[in-house]
Design a binder for these strands. Structure first.
Lengths: 199, 199
DNA sequence: TGTCATCTGACAGTCACTGTCAAGTGGCAG
DNA sequence: CTGCCACTTGACAGTGACTGTCAGATGACA
């Protein structure tokens, strides 16, 4: 990595971190991009060069987690059983999560109070699930492989989302792995009803 | 309904319809709110009085569908079996869908090309699923009722979303009911794998 | 050390969105 | 029928997110 790239990366990180701190202290809406730029000691235009929107300043905290999940999935050896492939996703997320819980917590809190941020977060999740499903589909044989893959990935995503929501509600005190296990076990145990066939 | 309310409702509808037509013809980004206001022969301020954001001009087309789904769910008699409750949701959506397929198709097309609109649509969906889950949870006994309810509703939502996506990809030619059935049958048939237990 | 590619900051401009207020219009009591 | 009240509307002004452009700065590399 060249010196130029290093500096850019550092500036990029500084901007997001500064923004997150300001959002936490003053609120998302009450913080202008110019204030962020001033606090990070860069020009306002530079903020937009690194982040397309104000929302993405919050969302970048999650991007890594999702990218890693996708990468870990791709690293699964070819013959791996599907349930193990799906488990890989959950474990990757849990691992990423242990990396930076405070920053994640702050990002969650900002997102919670700002529908536009939350909306883009959910959208990110959706895109991510579609990427995962495309990957998983190549490992499913037979017809309707795409349906099967998407349903499986969305189930896995649900486990992740529900566990995270509870974890967040506990203000980060609960054990995320435990919550994930609980949701997963329910799903594996037929406790969850499926809609009856349409008439 | 008084005359005043009638006029307001009519203005409201006219604005959304005008906006959707302009979005379809010129694109979402290339259409300004002032142009919409001019085309609908109202003041720009009036547009914002009825719709909080430009995006919501598109999303209002979906709002009815979701509201009806929730209402139909609440109308389920108390003793109804859970699988039948979930089926009610799917059938309600299918019914709403038969109501206005062209307008829905236009709205979908606009949303597809505009991430910010799509993001808010997915967000709407998320909120709707949470509302449904809260309702369903009251019909589930035992511990972890909330987890079970959310997982069940999200599964049902997945069926709806996947069927809709395929329907949309067929440019509205495919039979939505048939696609919904297909996704539902897959889910009911254990063809969809669940993640293995975490280590 | 000079040259080039790239990054940066300043400036100007567009447009989504909001608060405010006077004017218009329906609802309703007298 | 009429006048008063409540509510809806449109005009105006202002904020702030976001974009195109361009000259200047700075690292990469010969």
């Amino acid at each position: 990595m060249t010196l130029r790239e290093l500096k850019m990366e550092r500036t990029r990180d500084l901007i997001a971190e500064t923004a997150l701190a300001l959002f936490r202290d003053r609120g998302f809406a009450a913080t202008t991009v110019e204030e962020i730029a001033a606090a990070a000691e860069v020009g306002a235009r530079t903020v937009y060069r690194h982040y397309p929107t104000k929302e993405s300043l919050v969302l970048s905290s999650f991007a890594n987690m999702f990218e890693t999940g996708l990468k870990d999935l791709r690293a699964c050896p070819e013959g791996t059983e599907l349930p193990d492939v799906l488990r890989t996703i959950l474990e990757s997320l849990l691992r990423s999560h242990l990396g930076m819980p405070e920053r994640l917590m702050t990002a969650y809190k900002v997102a919670r109070d700002m529908p536009s941020v939350l909306a883009h977060f959910v959208y990110m999740l959706q895109i991510w699930e579609m990427d995962l499903a495309r990957e998983v589909a190549t490992r499913v044989g037979g017809r309707s492989a795409d349906f099967v893959a998407e349903l499986a990935v969305r189930q896995t995503g649900s486990v992740f989302i529900l566990a995270h929501r509870k974890w967040f509600e506990s203000d980060g005190q609960a054990d995320l792995r435990q919550l994930t296990l609980e949701a997963l076990d329910l799903l594996r145990s037929d406790a969850v009803p499926v809609a009856s066939r349409l008439s």
